[in-house]
Design a protein around this nucleic acid. Structure first.
Length: 197
DNA sequence: CAGCAGATTGACT
DNA sequence: GTCAATCTGCTGC
């Protein structure tokens, strides 16, 4: 099929878990310094805003870093983790509701050469930091528009069936108490199968 | 302002 | 299995 950019209406819906599930198989397209690189999304986590103890916006918290989480759905939220790793999130829901989906894994597709340069030859599917690095996503892209900006999401026709989706607890959020056990993590069982069409 | 932990990763014992 | 890399934001002095 012909690639189709995801419209604003994909992101502004109210169920952040539905969006996290539906993003599996979608394609992140980045255009930076004249180079196009793409990756197919294989793993996501939903962060459900003010009532989610694992979210940066829990309790309505606002800081310079998290302010973009309150933007309209379809905005990039990128933040630094452990001072080193740039973690890429897609803001969802209407403006003022700080929902987001973290991209934890991709399968590199277009621009493999550039991706290998950015990753210094290492594999790219290890986690959220490596996925963002592979695509050149940096904290300077936080707040950019996912419809018209340097990072966009497209549907290239990769279909992920429910039977191939695993659902479980999010990683690294033990501090969130009972919310750490919520089934908000979604991943594709056999990521490499996405490339063979 | 000092100390500490974090939606992590890669190198090393 | 341990540990260091180093930015952001919270807690406590």
């Amino acid at each position: 099929m012909r690639p189709r950019a995801l419209p604003r209406s994909f992101y502004t819906r109210t169920s952040v878990t539905d969006i996290a599930r539906e993003l599996l198989g979608m394609v992140i397209v980045t255009s930076m310094d004249g180079t196009r690189t793409t990756g197919i999304i294989t793993e996501t986590e939903a962060y459900a805003g003010v009532n989610d103890r694992a979210s940066h916006a829990h309790g309505g918290r606002r800081t310079a870093r998290t302010e973009v989480m309150y933007s309209e759905g379809g905005t990039a939220y990128v933040y630094l983790c452990y001072g080193i790793h740039h973690l890429f999130n897609l803001v969802t829901n209407e403006a003022g509701v700080p929902h987001a989906v973290l991209v934890r894994g991709i399968v590199p597709d277009e621009g493999i050469e550039r991706i290998m340069e950015r990753r210094l030859g290492r594999r790219t599917t290890g986690g959220p930091g490596t996925a963002a690095q592979a695509l050149g996503i940096h904290v300077r892209h936080s707040g950019t528009d996912l419809i018209a900006g340097p990072i966009r999401i497209e549907d290239h026709g990769h279909r992920v069936m429910d039977a191939d989706v695993r659902i479980g607890a999010r990683i690294g959020v033990d501090y969130a108490g009972a919310d750490a056990k919520l089934p908000y993590r979604f991943w594709v069982r056999r990521p490499d199968a996405l490339l063979s069409r």
